[in-house]
Design a protein around this nucleic acid. Structure first.
Lengths: 211, 211
DNA sequence: TCCTTCTTTTCGGTGAACCGAAAAATTAGT
DNA sequence: ACTAATTTTTCGGTTCACCGAAAAGAAGGA
């Protein structure tokens, strides 16, 4: 019924709306999957026919309830596998992705549950991203993008995108970690432990705080 | 370069010559893989073109040195994964096969080595079958098929085929296990712990003893 | 040997997932 | 509002691994 390719599409679409509200366009999807736009058009039509996605010609793509449920299951696999590789096999965060990308399509539900159990049924992966439940439910905490947070807002750092190169290192330098409590002092300035820290100009769109 | 399908073919061909000297025919290969004969013809030609297999039209198929090396690597993956699932996730021998069948194509060399290390670099799987080394070397002990063993020959049970239905249970009943020392008393009669045990008539072709 | 039977190959065809080039639709600039 | 640039779709084509039907080859029996 499903396939590795279908899973990858759903996962990407889900991923895109996890922290942003904008729906994904075919060209974004194509570039994130590393595929030609024409391939995306074709596959999106198939997904729509299966009721996993809604899409009218030339418009953006979004998941149906069924598609979202399926996507959550795949994200769950991916994040559990990543957590497992890091915790039990000493993988670094950089190494873990490509292995998980393949294993998420190969591991049975039974083995996945064995891994989940062995890890103590974690709710978050090492990046701080939520691991959906086995039933597809996602536990989400209210959040704001740093760019959208009002001046003076304080909250825990919930997530830092790994797509902005160098950002993780910059935050590390300022000893800002996932979980740290920070306050917004300016467009790209945070107060951390009473000290003001300036971030790269790309940071506001790549850091999420609890609301 | 390789693919899951190629791996499956090589594995089957290897498997067939592991305990028997006869080379495999296209029709046997087709039935063991659950494929149409025409599919086998086609794939075998591709394998031959890649130098993994030798085959002249209407003849049997055998692995080249390169093919055998590749096959050993796949068998290694398969058997390590099976061992791991049994030891660390409580899989039964019956359950383990289909999961390993998929994972053997998905796990990276790095993760495989992590698993190997965690298991203490085992040389045999729970069935008693040898696990090839990482470099493709297979440690084999000299063996005889029970059907070929001379009367009075004594040796350890090295392997019992899981293809003869009921045989594993029959041997279990007689408390003959992989590793047990037995002596040949007749065509289908073994001496075990000083007692004579009669086996089903299918047994002599499905039990291997150390030479 | 010749004829039948069984095995293997050849041949045309399928579905999945991809591609590039060209056409169509949308969006943006002035 | 109209043209230019961009995005999306359409269309024909590819590769991989499979299939069934029919032809070709090998093997066995009288």
């Amino acid at each position: 019924m499903s396939s590795a390719a279908v899973d990858d599409y759903l996962k990407m679409i889900y991923h895109h709306t996890e922290w942003q509200t904008e729906r994904i366009t075919p060209s974004q999807l194509a570039s994130e999957l590393g595929l030609a736009p024409s391939s995306v058009t074709e596959m999106v039509r198939k997904l729509a026919a299966q009721g996993l996605v809604t899409h009218r010609p030339y418009g953006p793509i979004s998941l149906t309830a069924a598609g979202e449920h399926r996507a959550a299951a795949i994200i769950r696999r991916h994040r559990l596998i990543e957590t497992w590789l890091v915790r039990e096999f000493g993988y670094t965060w950089a190494d873990v992705h490509e292995e998980a990308e393949i294993l998420e399509h190969a591991i049975s539900d039974r083995l996945l549950d064995g891994i989940d159990e062995r890890l103590g049924r974690p709710r978050f992966d090492p990046h701080g991203d939520a691991i959906p439940d086995a039933d597809g439910t996602v536990t989400r905490e209210p959040f704001v993008l740093l760019a959208d947070a009002p001046l003076g807002h304080c909250g825990r750092v919930l997530r830092v995108s790994d797509r902005v190169p160098g950002l993780l290192e910059a935050l590390d330098e300022a000893s800002v970690d996932v979980g740290s409590v920070v306050c917004v002092r300016g467009p790209a300035v945070l107060e951390v432990d009473g000290q003001d820290v300036s971030l790269p100009t790309t940071a506001p769109d790549a850091v999420w705080l609890s609301a």
